[in-house]
Design a protein around this nucleic acid. Structure first.
Length: 726
DNA sequence: TTAGTTAAGATTTTT
DNA sequence: TCTTAACTAA
């Protein structure tokens, strides 16, 4: 069958060039998924490859699912579902479970999500006598994850990063963390990729197996790969060299997760003789939307050269709104959606984007007020709830008794009289004797009170019973159910009797249902596999089966999607671009790419808005519209000419932030333009005390240059709270 | 040992 | 504003 019918020349080339390395630059809305799926179908149907010999790798479960569905649609009889379409993480998990013994692991190892990771890091830091307040455990988790993304093991950590206070601390924690993780038969997210690469590096026999298995490899969103993923791809593409990567450097938005844009930009160097195709025709958006996006992204320097165009008919100009605050913004957007709905659009034609998850709150409130169905993608998952994490920790300990991190989490939840002192004593024995916490329970511990011993043994009895049942192949849902009863979770929540505790109990029931669901549908209905699956889950199926709903998500989550109408909210300096990502040029460019991604999601109508005031930590702060507005020519906006006036703050009307009003010696410079001059000593919230070296510009553009030690910074006076010090 | 109260501290994006 | 850690009383 011809899978290139109706496609443009470039798309055809991308599909028909099946051999050797292929790089497809796929601009936003250029029919990328179509090309990938048709290429797979072509490989199977025309070139008679086994579906199993084709491997396609994506970043999200959602993308993988969509791809599988579409391939299935192209081919008869469910052939498509035999193609190996997986995320990086699930592919590696599959390989590692199979090859666990080569790493010295049992195949029933536990996967640590971020919270278990952090618990273990905290534990290690405590034992190493580090101050949790001085050094945030989460920042160490981050450093370790980045290190693994960069294929740097704990052994080589200090060789690769500059030696300073922080890196030395990380190094110490890293080693101990790895050691304990291994004792507990656990792997974290980063390990899944890192260990698979190491396995391929050290064991050519296994590598060869996978190389023969996969004759064709395709990678989606290649611009978001990090070093570890890059190497994994290189190994997997291996002998045949039939590697096809698809991506768009302008949509690279995950550098904070180790993604390296040069992976895609240097593909032709890594894979000589590669065939490069550029998909530049956009089928999604109007010329207006595309024009705005293109001019915006043209401000970036580190990008491959390309020109996106469309033959779509002209459409609406871009809407532009400025609001007093977030509540007003939310209210107005909801009203626009209601109006649009009356004009025969569906709710699900509308998406509201924001930069940070915290911003969703206002929209939720407004949508609830108007009783409009909505769905939040990303953000908090069902499986992120405390009670769900607790029951998962119980299940982890049942499947893997060596997993002391999970045991620690539930040893006294719900509280059963095993207190801090008891736990500390047990932990010490565990550390000294090098045995798991679970085993410690059987030891006689000097100085432990009778009462505590009884409690601990009761817990052990319950867990052992359930372990027995699990080994005797009792169904996972029955085990989960029994757990809720015997752990005392149910009793505790019923006794509490508050609305919240009842809903938590309902969540637990819902959890049991989802286990049951899994049991009846999965190929491998074991508890182990269930735990594996949910650990890699993102935000999917949050129970509610609404038919038509307004979509809410962060800009990051919007990648790969499209909507008739997009509301891009909160476009203020500081939130978008976010202040924390603006300390480098690369950060600034990434924010711009993020804005580019957001804009190019819109098919027909785009509405951008910002607030003049925003709440932060409870107090109101003045805001200025995002610089990205000024990078889009006025001709693309409605209300031409007025644009420049939006967001211009009149200093006299601005309320003085609370923290500057309590003490008269502290002056909010926002209210006193002109009072700053070189030589004055000031204090900045982030950078601390500094000396003004220069004042320039006027009105809204008045700037100060300040020297903080040997760091020089420029600020816009009107929007930077500075204290003048005497 | 726990529960209940108070004070500080936190918000970027996620597989 | 909301959550979590530290502190206090029973």
């Amino acid at each position: 069958m011809d899978f290139t019918i109706g496609l443009n020349e470039e798309q055809k080339k991308a599909i028909l060039q099946t051999e050797g390395p292929v790089l497809i630059f796929a601009g936003a809305g250029s029919g990328k998924t179509r090309v990938i799926t048709h290429r797979i179908a072509h490989l199977i149907d025309n070139l008679e490859n086994f579906p199993e010999s084709i491997c396609a790798v994506t970043f999200t479960n959602k993308a993988a699912e969509e791809m599988r569905e579409r391939v299935n649609h192209l081919l008869p009889g469910g052939i498509g579902s035999r193609v190996v379409i997986k995320t990086f993480h699930s592919l590696c998990l599959m390989i590692l479970r199979r090859e666990a013994k080569h790493l010295g692991f049992l195949s029933g190892f536990t996967i640590y999500d971020t919270s278990l990771q952090e618990s273990l890091i905290k534990e290690v830091m405590k034992d190493l006598k580090m101050d949790i307040k001085q050094l945030k455990p989460s920042s160490i988790v981050h450093a370790i994850s980045r290190s693994k993304d960069a294929m740097v093991s704990h052994i080589k950590y200090l060789d690769h990063y500059e030696k300073d206070f922080f890196s030395e601390k990380v190094d110490a924690v890293f080693s101990e963390y790895e050691k304990r993780k291994e004792q507990r038969q656990a792997l974290d997210f980063g390990d899944l990729i890192f260990r698979t690469v190491e396995l391929f590096k050290n064991n050519k026999k296994i590598l060869h197996q996978y190389n023969t298995k996969f004759k064709y490899l395709m990678v989606d969103e290649y611009q978001d790969t990090n070093k570890a993923q890059y190497e994994l791809v290189k190994y997997l593409a291996g002998e045949s060299g039939n590697l096809c990567v698809v991506g768009d450097d302008d949509q690279s938005i995950y550098s904070w997760r180790g993604a390296d844009i040069s992976n895609i930009l240097s593909f032709h160097k890594d894979y000589p003789n590669s065939f490069i195709v550029k998909l530049e025709e956009n089928y999604r958006s109007t010329p207006t939307i595309l024009g705005a996006a293109s001019t915006l992204i043209a401000n970036n320097t580190n990008r491959s050269d390309k020109t996106i165009f469309t033959n779509n008919p002209d459409g609406n100009k871009i809407g532009l709104f400025s609001y007093e605050n977030e509540a007003e913004e939310a209210e107005s957007i909801i009203k626009q959606i209601i109006k649009s709905k009356q004009e025969n659009k569906k709710f699900s034609d509308h998406a509201i984007f924001y930069r940070t998850n915290a911003q969703s709150r206002y929209f939720e409130e407004a949508l609830r007020r108007y009783s409009i169905p909505y769905k939040i993608f990303g953000g908090f998952r069902f499986f992120d709830r405390k009670e769900i994490k607790d029951i998962i920790a119980y299940l982890n300990t049942i499947v893997n008794p060596l997993d002391s991190t999970s045991l620690m989490r539930i040893i006294n939840t719900p509280s059963r009289g095993i207190g801090e002192t008891t736990i500390e004593k047990m932990n010490r024995i565990s550390l000294e004797e090098g045995i798991s916490l679970f085993e410690v329970i059987d030891r006689t511990i000097p100085g432990m009170k009778k009462g505590a011993i009884v409690k601990v043994q009761e817990l052990k009895k319950m867990l052992s019973d359930l372990q027995d049942k699990h080994e005797k192949k009792k169904s996972p849902s029955e085990i989960a159910y029994e757990l809720i009863e015997r752990s005392g979770m149910r009793e505790e929540m019923e006794n509490e009797g508050t609305e919240e505790s009842i809903s938590r109990l309902e969540n637990l029931n819902e959890f049991v249902n989802s286990v049951k669901d899994y049991e009846t549908n999965a190929e491998d209905p074991s508890l182990e596999e269930f735990l594996n699956q949910i650990s890699l889950l993102t935000s999917e199926e949050d129970t509610a089966n609404l038919e038509d709903y307004v979509v809410l998500m962060t800009v990051h989550n919007s990648k790969g999607l499209e909507f008739d109408t997009v509301f891009l909210s909160g476009m203020e300096e500081g939130t978008f671009p976010h202040s924390l990502s603006m300390d480098s040029d690369t950060g600034a460019e990434e924010e711009r790419r993020l804005a580019y991604v957001a804009i190019t999601r819109a098919k027909r109508k785009l509405v951008i808005s910002f607030c003049r005031f925003t709440r932060k930590f409870g107090n109101v702060e003045p805001r200025i519209r995002s610089r990205f507005f000024d990078e889009i020519p006025e001709q693309f906006f409605e209300e031409m000419g007025e644009k420049k006036q939006y967001g211009v703050r009149k200093p006299s009307h601005a309320p003085i932030p609370k923290r500057f009003t309590s003490d008269d010696s502290k002056v909010d410079v926002n209210t006193k333009n002109g009072s700053l001059q070189p030589g004055l000593k000031i204090r900045h919230k982030v950078y601390g005390v500094g000396i003004i070296t220069k004042v320039s510009g006027n009105g809204e553009n008045e700037k100060v240059e300040v020297k903080f030690g040997n760091l020089d910074k420029k600020f816009l006076i009107a929007y930077t709270p500075l204290e003048i010090l005497n």
